[in-house]
Design a protein around this nucleic acid. Structure first.
Lengths: 231, 231
DNA sequence: ATGCTAACGGCACTCCGTGCCACAGAGCAA
DNA sequence: TTGCTCTGTGGCACGGAGTGCCGTTAGCAT
């Protein structure tokens, strides 16, 4: 596949080596399965030493990832740079777009990753941890905005979890549909359709029950006095 | 600490060995830190062989856990045995009580676990994976109830995530306050206070706006015709 | 007492991840 | 050209996790 010349000495070389490792990992994982593929196999298939593999990835689980750390850092920047008055759906949307952007870099690997994450326990756990981090970032951002309000922390946690769930749902559907960049606007629309339901998480059941009860009584009154309706 | 007599041959013996391993792990983790404690250390401190440790726990990360698998299985039973018409808050509460029950078995270890999970990355990731599994169970249960409804899957994912977040918030506060069994009713109340807000996540913003508008109009009518009120 | 069952624990192995270090290619300076 | 540094490489070895194998032994039934 590659000559025996030393690569990785230039930025382009390093990018080439990285792509080679990702490609080798993707191929071997699909051919033999994740557990039956060792780091040595991946490194050998990519034509580099085992030691070099660990200079490009933290471990086997990262061999397919577009670097979770970098992605989370980007999301963190989105949150950190956000104006406190920015509407929540807008902020959620921008964070979602950032994450989507990470996957458009290599749709082929994204699809494979999606398939593997659904089947390999180790990758599933890693993904869960990554999403957990994302959720925490979001929760903190919301907690700042809800500081001082009753049940502020609680509402922040609940709302952030709901937003992240909506985000994941959109991301999963997008990946299941092939992760085509053309489908991204439709997918973002899908997410946008979810966002409005979330601010309601601040209400309480008695509020709604009372609202409904009063509304029913009012409806009866309205029915009997149609001419007395206002505006 | 213990005699050199063989233990673990009877169910009581096995329970004793298990407690010994958990106690040793807890002590060593706090003394030296998680990373600087090896499985050999724990096994030796508990007076058993290294090989035996792995017959009681899947790995080092499980040495403090009251067996996530067992807990998740219990929650699964709660969901599986639930009547489809059981109100959602009730189901959520029963699931939460099940989880709380897992922690009351040994509050001391629960507190230590809580502290370690907050600081050790490996344990944090494992906890995230466990919660992720819990969330998936809940999502599936809700998806069954919302099957056929518009955005059923989406609403199931969002609502389950919100419920689990509320649950975690209650659990965290309870653990931070010392995980005393006496505080459990108050904590469940805390959770109960949150649960009612969640079914609203199924509503949409236009619904609430319309509801509010109609209510305001009805209130005006009621104000003008107090004597015409029904029931 | 004898045999059965199940748990123990030691041994050895694979794999992961890392520290250490010698080596080689690129770039620069004289 | 020669020599130097700088940086990525990869081989080596080590510690630790987790597992299969197997002889040993306690507890129990017959």
């Amino acid at each position: 596949m590659t000559s025996s010349t030393r690569r990785g000495r230039s930025p382009e070389g390093r990018a080439e080596v990285r792509r080679g490792l990702v490609a080798a990992a993707a191929r071997l994982f699909t051919e033999r399965g994740y557990d039956d593929t060792t780091v040595d196999d991946i490194a050998a298939a990519a034509g580099v030493g085992r030691r070099t593999f660990f200079r490009y990835f933290r471990g086997k689980e990262d061999a397919l990832s577009p670097d979770h750390g970098r992605g989370l850092a980007r999301i963190g920047e989105v949150f950190a740079g956000a104006h406190p008055d920015e509407p929540l759906p807008s902020l959620a949307l921008r964070a979602a777009e950032t994450v989507f952007g990470l996957y458009t870099e290599d749709p082929e690997v994204a699809r494979l990753r999606f398939a593997l994450v659904g089947t390999v326990p180790a990758l599933r756990d890693r993904e869960a941890a990554s999403v957990h981090h994302y959720r925490r970032l979001f929760t903190r951002e919301l907690a700042v905005r809800l500081a001082g309000q009753p049940d502020g922390e609680l509402r922040a946690a609940v709302t952030a979890a709901a937003l992240v769930a909506a985000h994941n749902q959109a991301l999963r559907r997008w990946l299941a549909d092939g992760a085509r960049e053309a489908d991204l606007p439709a997918c973002v629309d899908h997410f946008r359709r979810v966002a409005p339901m979330l601010p309601l998480a601040g209400a309480t059941e008695p509020d709604l029950a009372d609202l409904t009860r009063r509304l029913e009584r009012a409806a009866q009154v309205l029915e009997r006095n149609p001419d007395r309706q206002t505006g």
